[in-house]
Simulated assay, not measured.
Amino acid sequence: MADDTRWLDDDEHETWMALATLVVRLPAALDRQLQRDSGLSHFEYQVLAGLSHAPERTLRMSVLASFAEGQLPRLSQVAARLEKRGWLTRAPDPTDGRYTLATLTDEGMAALVDSAPGHVDTVRRVVFDSLTKPQVRQLRDIARRINQATGDSTPC
């Protein structure tokens, strides 16, 4: 049986290990900061941020799950916690009752606005401060290519 595996060369392996470490450490760093400063997980922050950019701060739960890169059951658990805090509401979609709409409340928007400065400071410190402007553009282009290769057609 022939081995057709395209093994990584040394440079690719070193790059892969750096990227694999990054995709573990970056979310953990963002989570730690948000938990410490705002009592939010990074996933909860993404949910609130996704709703904040939506028309009327409302999205179908299925769309929100896709935006936040979470499964619907996980999103439902998080939405229930955020709902208890008064930060979002859920209601049947009046245009199609098979769907549920999530809406960011004014209190949820205030929580997002309060947590954003610390989050942005952390993103700037751990991602952008050590990069040049050309490297930032390179990183964006690389991330877009990898996202496209994973089947993500969402524009970033």
Rank of each mutant, 00 (worst) to 15 (best):
1 M>E: 05
2 A>M: 08
5 T>G: 00
7 W>I: 06
12 E>F: 03
17 M>V: 10
18 A>L: 10
19 L>F: 14
22 L>E: 08
26 L>A: 06
29 A>C: 03
32 R>N: 06
36 R>D: 15
37 D>V: 11
40 L>G: 00
41 S>A: 11
46 Q>V: 02
48 L>Y: 03
49 A>T: 04
51 L>V: 08
55 P>L: 07
56 E>W: 08
59 L>G: 07
62 S>W: 02
63 V>R: 13
63 V>E: 13
66 S>A: 12
67 F>V: 12
68 A>E: 12
69 E>M: 04
71 Q>H: 15
72 L>T: 12
73 P>S: 12
76 S>N: 13
80 A>F: 10
80 A>W: 05
80 A>D: 15
80 A>K: 14
83 E>K: 09
87 W>M: 13
87 W>Y: 15
87 W>T: 03
89 T>Q: 15
90 R>T: 15
93 D>K: 00
94 P>L: 03
96 D>F: 02
98 R>K: 06
101 L>G: 04
103 T>M: 03
105 T>V: 07
105 T>F: 09
106 D>A: 15
106 D>N: 12
108 G>P: 06
108 G>C: 11
112 L>Q: 02
116 A>Q: 07
118 G>H: 10
120 V>R: 11
122 T>N: 03
125 R>W: 02
125 R>N: 07
127 V>T: 09
129 D>L: 08
130 S>R: 09
132 T>Q: 07
134 P>Q: 12
137 R>V: 15
144 R>S: 05
146 I>W: 09
152 D>I: 02
154 T>R: 15
